[in-house]
């Protein structure tokens, strides 16, 4: 299997008035084709920033401070400012125009809040026309609109509604429109950042199901960013747990839920309610994550970790292979 995405030593920093906050810290990650990776962690752990970095759309004042992001491209992609050759491409080295060509065509991104992700001044149809024509200027408006209608119909939205404006749609429908816009050019990689967080549970289930179908139909590789482990249990093949900008554990979904290795992953799972075990006692994690502007040495989790040792306070644990076949960054497993 080839890697659809390979991230090497990626570091993203936000330059704030108080100092530099390292939101993503030397992350290593590779993702095989046609698999769904869940990226989980609490708010502020850097999961969204990591997703945005893959699009090279880290919000101001953030910037990629180091590392490489490789994506795999099937065919040569023509571009006004230098064609992009097929094969593995380091997108951190591309110019803005090359990056623009890749966005939407190779990598699609679905945002958290569908209520604010569409231009209130444009009809849904115009969103599709602009999207398609931005990548294929030779396609006529009518044809672009027809393609949009087709995609919307597949997602359960009446095609004649292309003349409507975003405010005439419900949240769930808008998110379907966003997914439609993401899928219309058949990208290889789909990153969705909390796509269902602002929706109710029933709509959430429908959307997740539709995304799973799309994944099958279009052989998508997916990254699903969420803090909701329940969503990942249904949809992800593998799960990466992030804490303070670092990946602390990466395992198949089954292994992660059965036998979490990292103390943080274990604690995280204990804090999730389970409908099949109504009597399960929920355990919270004491303390709060450290300040990223003034990071602590060693493992970032050590002040909250029940199994912390002396070495945890001084040395950053490397990401090593775990007993279950995944990866884990914890000194508990380093000794072997």
């Amino acid at each position: 299997m080839t890697n659809a995405l390979r991230i090497q030593d990626l570091t993203v920093e936000y330059k704030t008035r108080r100092g530099v906050a390292r939101a993503v810290d030397r992350v290593q990650l590779s993702l095989e084709e046609n698999r769904t990776l869940g990226l989980a962690g609490e708010s502020g752990c850097g999961k969204s920033t990591l997703g945005r970095a893959i699009m090279r759309l880290v919000p101001h004042p953030g910037q990629v401070a180091g590392g490489n992001i490789y994506i795999n491209i099937d065919d040569d992609i023509p571009c006004k400012k230098g064609d992009i050759p097929k094969g593995e491409v380091d997108i951190t080295g591309l110019n803005e125009e090359q990056m623009r060509v890749l966005r939407g065509k190779e990598i699609a991104y679905i945002f958290q809040d569908p209520m604010t992700s569409l231009n209130p001044m444009l009809t849904i149809g115009n969103h599709f026309i602009q999207m398609i024509q931005a990548h294929n200027p030779e396609i006529e408006k009518e044809e672009a609109l027809d393609r949009g209608k087709e995609v919307l119909e597949g997602l359960g939205i009446l095609p004649e509604r292309v003349t409507d404006y975003p405010h005439q749609f419900s949240g769930g429908m808008r998110q379907r429109v966003m997914i439609g816009l993401g899928m219309v050019l058949r990208p290889r990689l789909l990153i969705s950042d909390e796509p269902t967080t602002s929706l109710d549970v029933i709509v959430e289930a429908q959307i997740l199901e539709q995304m799973a179908e799309l994944k099958k139909t279009f052989n998508l590789t997916m990254i699903l960013i969420t803090h909701n482990l329940g969503v990942l249990a249904q949809t992800a093949d593998d799960i990466a747990i992030m804490y303070c900008g670092r990946i602390v554990e990466l395992a198949s979904t089954e292994n992660l839920f059965e036998a979490p290795q990292h103390p943080y992953a274990q604690a995280l799972l204990l804090s999730v309610p389970d409908v099949t075990k109504p009597n399960k006692k929920l355990v919270w994690i004491p303390g709060a994550p450290p300040d990223l502007v003034d990071p602590i040495p060693g493992c970032m989790f050590n002040p909250r970790c029940p199994m912390a040792m002396d070495i945890c306070k001084t040395q950053v644990p490397p990401l090593i292979e775990s007993e279950t076949g995944g990866l884990v960054a914890c000194h508990l497993y380093g000794g072997k």
């Binding site: 060509v101 945002f111 992700s117 931005a134």
Partner: peptide
């Protein structure tokens, strides 16, 4: 705003 970032993410020109 989100829709501006979303538009960039769809590869619309600057």
């Amino acid at each position: 705003m989100d829709f501006v970032t979303a538009a960039k993410a769809r590869g619309l020109s600057d």
